[in-house]
Computed example of a mutant assay.
Amino acid sequence: MTTTATTTTTAGTPAGEPAATEPRPRFHDLVAAEWIKLRSLRSTWIAYGATAVAVIAFNAGTAYDTHSHWTERDTADRAEFIRDGVPLMEAFTGNAAMVMALALTALGALVMVGEYSTGTIRTTLAAVPARRSVMAAKAVVVTAVTTAFGAFVAGTSFALTQAILDRREVGVSIGHPGALRVVLASALLAPVCALAGLALGSVIRRTAATMVASVLVILVLPTVLTDGRRWSAVADHAMPLQAWVRLTAVGHAPTAFPWTTGGAWTVYAVWALAAAVLAVAGVYRRDQ
């Protein structure tokens, strides 16, 4: 009688049979993992909450200042107040936009620099070597969360400011010409800036340097550029904050180098897409 011996591999798999492999993570699993990372950090929600309060307070405070210093006016004066677009200007002010842009850029950057500073990025990339998929999942989560955040802040600001102004009979509804554009432009400023921060964080990878770069790119650079020369005007128009100014402007004044609201929406789209691509490339092309 012949005895047949079965040899096994060191992992216990019979010889001649393919070794079992771990299934590759599906993209929605990576998105779920990034969402768990984000929502598990209490400091993240504190930062989002503080930003929301600050932005809404800026807008509501401006509307309340108008309300409290209101002088008696007749119906024609109120109509002129609305026609001049003041209620829409106070629905989301320039100061509030700057605060939200800077805060969301920083929060987007922290998604990356937080992992690099703690070293957890090594664990992430060891578990999922597909770096581009990991970064794409981060970009999806950042976009979804900040879009919801922007919609909440812009919507709440509009409702609150118009309720305050309506006590003087000068509030407007969301159906008023230009009102929906103001809310949408203000809401989408959040994900655009957050993705820009994510891209800066993936490239720079140092908290302090990334925060400085965020301020320079989002806030300082637009103040340096002017509409006086064509090249400067074109560069100025390509900045997110200036695109927001164009989209929320009421009765846009003619300039030497005019641009359209369609161009401003294009700036939003290009910044978001370019930032997402840069974030993916920033991790894929470099080591940990």
Rank of each mutant, 00 (worst) to 15 (best):
R131Q: 09
A154F: 08
G150C: 07
V234P: 04
A54H: 03
D287H: 12
T2F: 12
L184P: 00
P129F: 13
M135F: 09
P191D: 03
D227L: 15
T75N: 12
T10I: 13
V141W: 05
G201E: 06
R122I: 14
R168P: 04
W271F: 08
G251Y: 03
L184S: 08
H69C: 03
T248H: 02
A233D: 03
I218E: 05
D65G: 13
L247H: 13
T261M: 07
A126W: 00
L184R: 01
S68K: 12
A79H: 07
L195V: 09
W35S: 14
F58R: 00
V53E: 00
A76D: 11
E80D: 14
P129I: 12
E22V: 15
M211D: 02
G228Q: 15
V212Q: 02
L278E: 02
A159M: 12
G12H: 10
P191C: 09
V128R: 01
V142K: 01
L102Q: 02
F92H: 09
G228A: 15
V220G: 01
W259I: 00
F92K: 05
A15W: 04
W259V: 00
L221V: 15
L225P: 00
P129A: 09
T147I: 05
R78Q: 15
T6R: 12
L273G: 08
A60G: 10
G94C: 01
T266F: 11
G201H: 10
M112V: 15
A209Y: 08
L188G: 05
T124W: 07
A97G: 12
D74W: 09
A185E: 02
S202C: 14
A5Q: 09
A20M: 07
T4K: 05
A15G: 15
A139K: 09
H252V: 11
L30C: 09
P191N: 13
T44K: 06
A60P: 03
S173D: 14
V283L: 13
T44C: 06
T105L: 05
V267K: 10
L225T: 04
T266P: 01
L216Q: 01
G155N: 06
A243Q: 02
A276H: 04
F149E: 04
